[in-house]
Computed example of a mutant assay.
Amino acid sequence: MDYQVLNTELLENVLDALPDGILIVSSQRQVVYTNVRFREMWHIPQDIELADEGRAIMQFALSQLVDPEGFMRIVEALHQTTQTLDDEIRMRDGRVFRRRSVSFLDRDLGQSRIWIFTDVTSITYSHIDTLTGLLNRNKFERHFSSLSVAASPELVVGIAIFDLDHFKLFNDTYGHSAGDDVLRNIGKVISEHLQRTSDAAYRVGGEEFFLQYHSRTREDVIELMNNIRSAVEALNIPHKANPPYNRVTISCGFGVCTQPKSPEFIYRQVDNALYKSKANGRNQITLVELDELSYSI
């Protein structure tokens, strides 16, 4: 008995039995394997084969994505690294896939990568904060491990933690119903400023928000956060318990990185920057250069 053939057939049978879509890519960016579920999920026609190193399959798959450019930015950033990934992607037909990836070293394929896709459409909306329309804390905790995974010299990642200034006093003064209206407006402001499906905003606490944003320049990610802060102030929502502004404002800690960092390091540094903004008078942003040093803007 040829055990090598047996093992290959057994492995393919096991992978084809999985409920997840499996894609394996070699160090040369060649698609070397797709299981049956992958083709079903991505509606890949049976006549599209791997003969052209998977280029036709990838083009067909990319055409179904809401943000194919964002999808490929992540792929390029991870290529031939050992970083893991766990995030979500959105399809043009409304479906949502959880996307996971790990690297492995193969004697023939080199530093290769396996991609795992799970259809999570039916549970996606359980991760939406009903008040703001943003993602909720449960979703944030699931995404926490991939905070800076796309950071590279060619792709800057901006990460912000911000909250509303003296929001408890706002609720005490104007009532919780008015406070809920403020949170709805904050959700709208944030949603209007997000440009790509690879960006994400979360309501992680009562009045605390977390945002991750990608761009090709450092200036763009800084401008985005400045625009959000200004847009909140421009709502002109009265808040007499928030002097000297006397309107609803936000304080923000904001980190920028071009090199992958641990999620724990990022959160700690950005959270510290938030408290500096509060200590320095609120309604402002403290920028921390996660690759270097921190300063205020």
Rank of each mutant, 00 (worst) to 15 (best):
S277Y: 01
N138Y: 06
H214I: 08
S277E: 03
D20I: 07
Q28P: 02
V25Y: 00
T8F: 07
L50F: 13
E76S: 11
P260H: 02
R99N: 08
G21M: 03
P19L: 08
V96C: 00
Q195V: 11
Y33K: 04
N7S: 13
A51L: 15
I22F: 12
S215G: 10
E223N: 14
N283A: 09
R218T: 14
N283W: 06
T82L: 12
Y245P: 01
V31M: 14
E223G: 10
F265T: 10
A61Q: 02
L50M: 14
F162D: 01
I114V: 15
Y33I: 03
S63P: 06
N35G: 03
T286W: 00
R137K: 08
D16F: 07
K139Q: 07
L11P: 06
C257E: 00
V149K: 00
Q46T: 11
F38A: 14
V102H: 09
V14E: 03
H176Q: 08
V31T: 15
D180T: 02
F38C: 14
F209R: 01
F104C: 11
R29K: 15
V5T: 12
N272G: 11
L50T: 14
R229H: 04
A273T: 04
F209A: 01
R37I: 04
Q111N: 14
E76K: 12
S122H: 13
D165I: 06
T197Q: 14
M58H: 13
D67N: 00
D93M: 04
C252N: 07
Y33Q: 03
F170V: 05
L155M: 10
L135V: 08
R282I: 10
I228L: 13
S296I: 12
D47N: 12
N280S: 13
S112I: 13
E192P: 14
S26W: 07
E53G: 13
Q195R: 15
D180M: 00
I297Y: 12
G179H: 01
R218C: 08
R142K: 14
I116L: 09
M41L: 15
H166L: 09
G133L: 02
L10K: 11
M1G: 13
Y3D: 11
R98F: 07
L11E: 07
N272A: 15
I250C: 12
G255H: 00
L293T: 07
I57R: 00
E9L: 11
V204T: 13
I285R: 00
G205L: 04
G70F: 01
N246M: 10
D181T: 10
E88Y: 07
G158C: 11
F38G: 05
H127G: 14
P68W: 02
L155G: 03
R229W: 02
D199Q: 05
E141V: 15
T130P: 01
P243G: 11
L6H: 04
Q28D: 15
K240A: 14
T84P: 09
L62Y: 05
Q195S: 11
D163P: 00
G54F: 02
D108M: 02
G175P: 02
Q46A: 12
D119G: 04
I24K: 01
I48E: 02
D86Q: 10
L11T: 13
F209H: 02
R218F: 10
